[in-house]
Design a protein around this nucleic acid. Structure first.
Lengths: 231, 231
DNA sequence: TGCACTCATGATGTATACACTTTGCACACA
DNA sequence: TGTGTGCAAAGTGTATACATCATGAGTGCA
């Protein structure tokens, strides 16, 4: 299964953006990338344009491509929008899923669980991404899929740091997320629209809690200030 | 205000697709288009890729670009999704609109009303499109905007035929739609989120009724069958 | 007549040279 | 020293030649 160097470049850039290997706002220079991926600038530019269409990068005239930014305004809108789209998509997925898609979902979830067990942060993030993207495909709704894909980009980027093994307090939450995935598969397979909606919102809440804790971490212990600080 | 030939090509194709001048599913040949718009194939392909990113066309490997199809499955999903996105976007628009944007909206609505008065079907469709796209911009939500833009493509294409002067029964509905636009501007300006949500759903219902009447027109009079048909 | 194979034709995909735009540094001048 | 101008370097935009692939007409064989 050797894929074309162009597809390889597309997938590679997606993955590097999702895993924050290339940080938001970074400049993407055509010459460097076309050299790295062994394709000339023409197909490379096509890749960048496709990435721009999917919301991974932004293009500006005569000024090249940048990785989509993730500033405070973006995040605010992200938290505002995700529950609506996620729950709508999940409901539709339960209504429209095919047996084949359920099977695909199980495969991806198995890979996610495996990554959890191995403590492989990058694999966790990417398999989680694919898991939710698959649910989007099940929904069979191109309009919502466009929103969902963009949400997932930022979700995966935001969530990337929590999958690190360096955060032991998070491992409980990650296990819980994995269990929720299993429950979601069952609910979608059984076409229980009410259940999948609830599960999806719970799954979102878990994610959100972890993300918010990252954005606004617990404050440092106050006694340090009391003992040695200024009046 | 002379725009680049590339931008002209992009806008021109968008407009021709929206007005069904190029019908859904049509093949778009690079050589013919690059000739027509006076640009070489490289920038033309970039235009097609941008159009694909926005949902106007679909690209397939070694098989060129096609105008996005509009089959029964697409329409079913369209009717399913539009109310959710439209009402969510409208609410956010009321919350986030700026004074400048309100002014833009008034200008576009004036052009829409003018097109209605002139019976210019194509201008009506395009100004209506722009009106709703502007509301999307007011919402300041890139995730929902992706869905909205795709919905509007199909909405405008579906609605295109009702704006024809040949359908006199529709002129009442068109006037009503124009009045609803005015009311929507006021509600957005006043940030009345409850009102704008209701208005948006009413506006949608009006559109939907017209569209459904087109898809499933009144049956022919039965007496023709009774007088001369088979037993 | 029916089917499969071949090859010509026309389309899309890629590489590359060249044109244009941006940007930052150096230098002159106030 | 501060500011504005001009130039050089680097990066993006476009045209075009060539490579590759899809398609269909035509031919040979069963």
């Amino acid at each position: 299964m050797v894929q074309s160097p162009k597809q390889n470049c597309f997938d590679g850039l997606k993955q590097r953006i999702l895993s924050m290997d290339i940080s938001p706002g970074s400049n993407l220079e055509e010459a460097a990338l076309s050299d790295r991926y062994g394709i000339s600038r023409t197909p490379l530019r096509e890749v960048l344009q496709r990435l721009a269409g999917d919301g991974y990068v932004t293009l500006s005239e005569n000024r090249g491509a940048k990785v989509a930014s993730m500033d405070l305004a973006t995040m605010r809108v992200f938290f505002q929008t995700a529950p609506l789209i996620y729950s709508s998509v999940a409901r539709l997925a339960a209504e429209n899923r095919t047996a084949t898609q359920i099977e695909q979902l199980r495969v991806v979830q198995a890979l996610f669980a495996k990554a959890v067990a191995a403590g492989d942060a990058e694999a966790m993030a990417l398999k989680n991404h694919r898991f939710h993207e698959l649910i989007g495909e099940m929904a069979h709704n191109a309009y919502l899929m466009a929103s969902l894909k963009r949400l997932l980009i930022d979700h995966t980027r935001l969530g990337h740091m929590f999958y690190r093994p360096s955060a032991p307090a998070e491992s409980v939450a990650i296990l819980k997320a994995s269990q929720q995935h299993e429950a979601m598969i069952s609910a979608i397979e059984a076409r229980e629209t009410g259940v999948i909606t609830d599960l999806t919102l719970q799954h979102w809440d878990l994610s959100r809690d972890r993300m918010e804790r990252f954005v606004r971490p617990d404050p440092l212990p106050l006694d340090i200030v009391e003992n040695g600080g200024v009046a």
